[in-house]
Design a protein around this nucleic acid. Sequence first.
DNA 1: AGCACGCCGACT
DNA 2: GTCGGCGTGCTC
Length: 727
Amino acid sequence: MTGDSREMKVVPVLVPMPAERPYSYVLQEGMEAVPGSIVRVPLGPRQVAGIVWDTPVENIESKRLRQVEEIFDCPPIDETARRFVDWVAAYTLTPPGLVARLLLRAPAAFDPEPWSEGIQLTDVEPDRLTDARRRVLALASEAPAWTRSGLAHAAGVSSTVIDGLKAQGVFETVMLPPRPVVPAPDPSYALPDLMPDQMSAAQVLRDGVASDRPGVTLLDGVTGSGKTEVYFEAVAAALAKGRQVLILLPEIALTQAFLERFQDRFGAKPAEWHSDLAPRMRERVWRQAVEGTVRVVAGARSALFLPFKELGLIVVDEEHDPAYKQEDRVFYNARDMAVVRGHLGKFPVVLASATPSVESKVNAMQGRYTCVELRGRYADAALPELKAIDLRRAPPARGGFLSPALLGPIRETLDRGEQALLFLNRRGYAPLTLCRVCGHRFQCPECSAWLVEHRFRGQLVCHHCGHTEKRPDACPECGTVDHLVACGPGVERIAEEAVSHFPDARTIVLSSDLLGGTKRLRMELEAIAGGEADIVIGTQLVAKGHHFPNMTLVGIVDADLGLANGDPRAAERTFQLLSQVTGRAGRTGKKSRGLIQTYQPDHPVMRAIVSGDSSAFYEREIAERERAALPPFGRLAAIIVSADSRADAEGHARGLRRAAPDSPDIHVLGPAEAPLALVAGRHRFRLLIHGGRRSDIQTFLRAMLASGPKLRGSVRIQVDVDPQSFL
DNA sequence: AGCACGCCGACT
DNA sequence: GTCGGCGTGCTC
């Protein structure tokens, strides 16, 4: 070796920005990095954390290279997690750097947690004993080490007592390792008492975990059939094997009640991971996941990107829930990516739901997933009696929206001292306001959607873009005063109607525009569960999580709402939503019922809900999707327009339909649902195409470019993958 | 993603 | 004459 060519060690580093490939950096003298090491590197004017990657480094002029500043004292991100980042990046058309950023969401966690100072007993005897000293010494021998304040507090003495003993040498200082965020769960803490079908289902899941058999199991069980207890057995099996477990839940379902159920089974709570976790806790969970201290994490979708040391099972509860889709920056569906992570890590994945998504049903039918069904219900959770109210036969009184066939049962429920829930998935007072004189309709100036009246706030609000304006008294078109009429119902209007019928009942409206945010919402939900309301009128946020022990009547105000909005998943969503909402009435132990107001009592969704048998509904839905070449059957070019978010996409779709009337059917789905993307310009505009032949897509694009909205720059096809190729 | 640079409209 | 809008380009 010649003197001037001292060996320079160059490493690829994935930096947290939209780079298509890792950047190259030079290691300083004596630095040792392996793939997965977390490093601090200069990037432009600032310093960022990046991950040492393993794709070969290509030649960069050496004068452009900059040095790695620091290698963090942190276990390297493992091979599986790195392949997962690459996979997600390729599948979602996201630069790998941005995906890597999801893994690095806890900046302070790259340095080890500090050890804290503690004390432990020595052989030295104190010079004399006092009452306080006796208590301290008695307690101190019960554990190997204590913190100074912890021991003082436990013994009920001032910490000066400890200081005195320490000065004599009775205690000595020791360094204590960081405290685990949660105690270790014990897989055999409280073995459950399972019913026969739960037992066999649990056995299937346990076997999958025990035999290290990777693969996906769809756990399909009606509300109240005990799915949670069943998948807890899979969790127990994974824990017993020394593996970590991730339980994914839609954010709203991550409740105290769930954590307590887990604690009842395993003797300790799981670590939590969600968006409003305190930063300090977030860092501790991240660090303890990578070090393997934390054994079970219950988290929202972003928990999928925690750098687990030895993950051995993922459970996706409520797998059908749209909250698993992330539609900003990195577009992904956490349920699908969980399947991928399991596949790459060669461990099992359990998808649980009472109303599985059509995709998962198809995957189960076609043998990609193992299907485990739970049919039975606990005795004390008998199904509610469900009935459709045919609004053509029993119409509401003029100007109202509640049928006499629903009002009667509400009265009876109130008379029994029980609670009623009226469900309407529409915020505000009325979805449309018009002028009775000239017919003017209030529209959003930004996006041309109808403005929704919010009477409590005295505003007109666009539910699309958030635009608000004051509700005027006069028509802006013809100037006539006091002739504006509200059309159609929203929850506020239903509340008004309920109050007029039942003035003595305590009525409450629950919707996401409730002032006071999630905290207030949680309090309201608890108050309702505690019996502080008689009639609850709510949007879809009442569908999840909470148990209302005295809720014996559920009325669906407009079951048809949402069936006719052009969304290819409209029927599926409605089925899932209605079945969750009617399920709110089924867990009381008392006789309960669900009444469903509809103009289409023969619609497959209504039949499925009322009969409790969804098989015909799924069959039809699958056939329909297959015919229309919609997901999960992406064979033909079903064109989906999308942009940076679903709301944006709706706007683009409207523009596109106007500009290119000959374009194929345009279905708007969120970006997270579409694996093949055409990118026009840079960020502005994204067309996502589900399935389809490249030639069809190009034909469509050519037509669109000729007649469509102005597209910046060139249009290119980035990726071409089959939506199910990961299985 | 962040950040700098750069080129056209309303202001002390 | 400048402040500041956001369009464009770059980061090993």
